[in-house]
Design a protein around this nucleic acid. Sequence first.
DNA 1: TCTTATTCCGAGTAATTTAATCGGATTTAC
DNA 2: GTAAATCCGATTAAATTACTCGGAATAAGA
Lengths: 152, 152
Amino acid sequence: MKVSTKSRYGVAAMLDIAQHCNDGPVALRNVAERQQVSEHYLEQLMSSLRNAGYVRSIRGAQGGYVLAKDPATITVGDIVRAMEGPIAPVDCLLAEKGPANPYCGKSEQCVRRNIWLKMGESIASALDSISLASLCTDLQPSKEVEERGEQV
Amino acid sequence: MKVSTKSRYGVAAMLDIAQHCNDGPVALRNVAERQQVSEHYLEQLMSSLRNAGYVRSIRGAQGGYVLAKDPATITVGDIVRAMEGPIAPVDCLLAEKGPANPYCGKSEQCVRRNIWLKMGESIASALDSISLASLCTDLQPSKEVEERGEQV
DNA sequence: TCTTATTCCGAGTAATTTAATCGGATTTAC
DNA sequence: GTAAATCCGATTAAATTACTCGGAATAAGA
């Protein structure tokens, strides 16, 4: 029940890019340095985020990544789904309901299925309620402190 | 972000025991058969549940497991925690807050930590809201149908 | 007392998933 | 032309999960 590094690094990278978007495209090398993660590994993650339409990449020298959407419209849930696929604590939630379901076939009557359904919904609702934009404003105060040269 | 088989089987076993508690101690052999899981594997899970105080075991022939508490006071969250430890999507939530935290040291000021904190809290709240007793009553209607000989 | 049914326990292993790593191709600013 | 980037696919290493196995201890019932 841990969140994978994909999701954690993905969120960290998106937040990093959002924070530095005023200085032009953000190169992965810098993200990797600031967030202390492997640049090569980040590459993989970014390709998922790009395919999902959350960032746009600019190749070549001075290139990098920029947000492809308003940060207010990108949620942590979106990022997690881009990194890991649908939020579903058990596989039977993904199969279509009814007799075709290869798992138990009982679909929504299954009380155990409903446990994990509820769990998944509450995770999604929590993560979807957090936008990149809100994370950036939460980060703002400490950034000001930092600019004054104080220790964080 | 999948739930482990430990948690799934653990919940299934507890529910099975709760349902069959009127017929005396419930042997794992029967649970394993009904739930279609390895008896040996279940053994391991039951020892966690016993140590956590949710079931009591009776050894020897005609032995088995019985609930150690009122099913209304046992939640799915309790079972999951017994199987997997604290519900914490990231490890830094487990470390004590403040400078001693070996992860980022920033404790509650860390915006990313707060994401996963919120996620963990919403999982816990969802799972803690479901008691074994409520699952049993949800299961009741289909049981009646079953007893009338209808197909479930 | 013997047999059988059961829990208990710890060690070992197989399978899967996660988390990277690596090498090189492609693109573009300067 | 060169350096700084992204892009892409393959491979590998590490960790976790999901079991399996063998046998000891316990207790009921004949």
